[in-house]
Design a protein around this nucleic acid. Structure first.
Lengths: 233, 233
DNA sequence: AATGGTTTTATGTGCATACATAATAGGCTG
DNA sequence: CAGCCTATTATGTATGCACATAAAACCATT
């Protein structure tokens, strides 16, 4: 059986994947180098490189210069979550999106907030609370602090109509951010707003975004009971 | 100001990022085509392509043949989570890892499990419960079902010593999987094992992996209170 | 045997060129 | 004007070549 010739990087990738799954190359194994594979597959080294690089980005291969390429011993599953605007998230489930502003004011934030955002302990920030609906049922509660020094325009925005979630994406660019997922027990207030029993276990997303060295906004999204965030591996 | 010449794809990427952040190219805008950019930057089109492709993979650009490249209107934040083996997760926090098997038996699973795994309603599966520790405190509770038709070797494995979590990664390859994050309220049993009050809000990861068309394993990881899953954007 | 410098090697990247492919735009025909 | 066909265009990718770079392996010196 002479090599059936793999002429594009996708098919090279598929063949490498096949060998990994078939355990011809086991976790931890060193695989042949690019030049050899290229010859075996009857294609250019660039093509093999492209395929292997893609697999390495997905965490299935470990590559190091000179040391060579080996099958990842512990294939760190890279779950790529798409965190979209809430409106889109709801609409993509085929539900009707609704939005209601709860409060909107300048205030000096709790220390935990100003510390995380690295703003002065007495600097006022714009504080916004809003509720997102899916088919008229509460979907998520948004509790957000905005650094007005970084986003001065936010003062003039009409958060009755457009959610801060959406407005910021369009008007406030960020260079980096961090995101955390956790669970929280519903406070009396949260339970009332989300229309669920107090103490319910709720799924939470905390996000903090930065523009260079300045914090742009910190937001906590608390989802109604039963919410799941899913993705494929 | 003559172009300072961007000679590698990283610097091209940086420059494109700068323009996006500086709003020279706003969300939704069509940006110049690869050939033009290549000329402007004084590099080959291949290099520009590499840079733009990487940005598109990160969701910052939308590219379509002939239609061109535009800045993503709603930069769907792609959070890439690294789901590692629990032992590594704990050790990377600088804590001591511990593991204890709770139960290990063949049993006919609840309907919800056999349905999700698409096994026969009366087919027995291998059921494993175990507890992971960090610095001697309960860290996560693992509740797992294994399809022994797909992983026959699992019968002989010593799950007293090695966690199923780890054993499977090494011995059972999978071709695809799904993962879901949510919150749950601690049952009396869970509370006892995790050493926390009943009704505590707990963070949960559900994972189901497949080898081709057959389910390999379905696992629920319930974390001790306060657990956060974090990543950078 | 420890040390430090040099060679070797596998991956990483850039470039010029060619062709493939998707999708729009434009033109032709009825 | 609707419908179909064709030309155009931007991205996608394969190739051969060259050189860059990291890191392991080797060797010589002390």
């Amino acid at each position: 059986m002479n090599s059936p010739s793999f002429r594009n990087w996708q098919s090279v990738q598929d063949e490498v994947l096949r060998r990994i799954h078939a355990r011809e190359w086991k976790p931890g194994d060193l695989i042949p180098n690019e030049a050899d594979l290229a010859q075996e597959f009857g294609c250019a080294r660039t093509t093999v490189n492209r395929a292997l690089r893609a697999l390495a980005e997905n965490g299935l291969l470990d590559r190091r210069r000179k040391a060579g390429t080996r099958v990842a011993a512990q294939p760190v599953a890279k779950a790529t979550l798409d965190i979209a605007v809430i409106r889109r998230e709801v609409e993509e489930r085929g539900q009707k999106y609704g939005y209601q502003l709860i409060s909107h004011a300048q205030a000096v934030p709790p220390l935990a907030i100003s510390a995380a955002m690295q703003t002065g302990a007495r600097d006022p920030l714009l504080h916004i609370c809003a509720l997102h609906f899916a088919d008229d049922a509460p979907y998520a509660l948004e509790d957000r602090w905005i650094n007005m020094h970084v986003v001065p325009d936010a003062g003039g925005a009409d958060f009755q109509q457009v959610s801060a979630n959406e407005w910021l994406l369009k008007h406030a660019p960020y260079t980096k951010g961090e995101i955390a997922f956790s669970a929280t027990s519903a406070t009396a207030n949260e339970a009332a707003v989300l229309n669920c029993p107090a103490q319910s276990a709720l799924f939470v997303i905390d996000r903090l975004t930065w523009d260079k060295a300045q914090a742009v906004t910190k937001v906590r999204l608390i989802f109604a009971p039963g919410h799941q965030l899913r993705t494929l591996l």
